[in-house]
Amino acid sequence: MAQSIEARNISFQYDTAAGPVLAVKEASFSVAPAEFLCVLGPSGCGKTTILNMLAGFLTPTGGEILMDGNPVTAREHNRGVVFQDFAQLFPWRTARQNVEFGLEMRGVSREARRETARQFLKLVKLEKFADAYPHQLSGGMQQRIAIARALAYNPGVLLMDEPFAALDAMTRDEMQKQLTEVWQETRKTIVYITHNVAEAVYLADQILVMAPHPGTIRARIPLALPRPRDPLSANFVEMQRQVLANLTH
């Protein structure tokens, strides 16, 4: 079910009042099925633009994106998307109804929706909160609901735009651990945007390090650290040092 992604020389140019701005310049990368890719870089380096192109929200102004060998078109829905902002959940729907949304759009029957939602709420350990409204849940819980929602309709790719950046450090560590478990269980291809080196080293099979003005890929770093990863181990710290060197040289 997991898809591969192939980006070939993709560029994106915004037209602003002050003239055209090149946000991403000729980026190429590939992600294998069920691989976890982290795109790492400072703000303004075009990493969110890359995610928006993968999601189909933006069409590249140059180059092309293939998913499982097929070109990505603007409206094709085989991707799950999780944003940073907690407000992404629909406040008028309970946790369960949020998770059911994608299935509802596909006309899945009520019973089947309910069962799938239960399963994915269980996956993110929130089955007890199925009938809570988003505003009754903490930020970390809301992000887990958003992950369950993005996975419930079984997309080939999960795109995540700094989903834990607005959480406190302790919750974030727990979320990263849970996400790794969810990923290992569901075997989705994940593209994860972050500006946090430790987060990227903890999560990724492959890290793309980006540099700004214009956004380009500066380095492609494969990670072979065994999982579960220990952020305090010497290997982990050494890896962080390597990634950081690529980010700041």
């Binding site: 999601a55 189909g56 929200f57 409206r75 829905h77 991707r79 799950g80 998307v81 944003f83 902002d85 407000a87 992404q88 629909f90 008028w92 949304f101 994608g102 509802e104 759009m105 596909r106 929602r149 993005a150 309709y153």
Partner: peptide, 29 residues
């Protein structure tokens, strides 16, 4: 209406009519 709701719904396969009924109307309520 929060653009994130619209984006989420589009990513989840909502058509224009579904988007209107299931996101815009309750979002504007």
């Amino acid at each position: 209406v929060n653009p994130l709701w619209v984006r989420s719904a589009l990513a989840m396969g909502a058509g224009q009519r579904q988007l209107f009924r299931s996101v815009v109307l309750p979002g504007a309520s």
